[in-house]
C-alpha cells in the first residue's frame, strides 16, 4: 500500500508515492537523486545521513519518508546552494577537514546545528557535538579546528578564508 506525500526539499516542492517502509534517505538518494546524503550504517550510529528537517538535524536513515510529509527538508546540496554554510565549507577546505568525504555532509550538518545553538563552543563542546558523527579518515582534529575557526569568524575574530 503506497502513500502519497508532499514535502519541500531544498526549497522545491516534491510529490512522491512511497512505500510505508521507505526511509527519507532512500527517498532523497534513490528517487530525488540527492546523493550528497550518504548511508554508512542505516541504524542511526554514524551520522553520514544527517539532513535538516524543519531546521533541525535528523538521521535520514531512521526517519521514514512518510514522516517528512508536509515538512521542509534541506540536504547538503540545498545548504551548499543557499550559501548558508559557505564559511564552514571554506574552513573545512582550508583545514583539510575531510579526506574521503563520505562523512562530510553529516559533519557540516552537525556543525551548523551546533553553531546555531552555541555560537562560541569550546573544543570539548565541539567534540561532544560530533558524538554521533563517525569519521574513519581524519582523526577528527581537523574537523574540530574547522568548526572552531568558523565560530571565531562568525564572532568577528580572525580572518575569513575564501
Amino acid at each position: 500500500m503506497n502513500i502519497e506525500i508532499a514535502l519541500t526539499v531544498n526549497g522545491e516542492t516534491v510529490r512522491e508515492t512511497v512505500e510505508p517502509r521507505t526511509s527519507l534517505a532512500d527517498l532523497l538518494r534513490d528517487r530525488l537523486r540527492l546523493t550528497g546524503t550518504h548511508l554508512g550504517c542505516e541504524m542511526g550510529s554514524c551520522g553520514a545521513c544527517l539532513v535538516m528537517l524543519d531546521g533541525a538535524p535528523v538521521h535520514a536513515c531512521l526517519v521514514l519518508a512518510v514522516q517528512a510529509d508536509g515538512q521542509k527538508v534541506e540536504t547538503i546540496e540545498g545548504l551548499n546552494e543557499s550559501g548558508h554554510v559557505s564559511d564552514l565549507q571554506a574552513q573545512f577546505h582550508d583545514r583539510n577537514a575531510l579526506q574521503c568525504g563520505f562523512c562530510t555532509n553529516g559533519m557540516v550538518m552537525s556543525a551548523q546545528a551546533l553553531l546555531s545553538d552555541n555560537p562560541r563552543p569550546s573544543r570539548a563542546e565541539i567534540r561532544d557535538a560530533l558524538s554521533g558523527n563517525y569519521c574513519r579518515c581524519t582523526g577528527y582534529e581537523a574537523i574540530v579546528d574547522a568548526i572552531a575557526a568558523t565560530a571565531d569568524r562568525r564572532a568577528g575574530i580572525g580572518e575569513t578564508v575564501e
Binding site: L34, T35, N105
Partner: peptide, 21 residues
C-alpha cells in the same frame, strides 16, 4: 596546497559507487 577535489565533497557532489544508478 589545498585539495581541489575536496570542494566537490563539501558541495555534496561526491561521486561514489554507492551513488551510481
Amino acid at each position: 596546497h589545498r585539495r581541489g577535489n575536496a570542494l566537490r565533497h563539501l558541495a555534496g557532489r561526491g561521486r561514489f559507487v554507492t551513488d551510481l544508478a
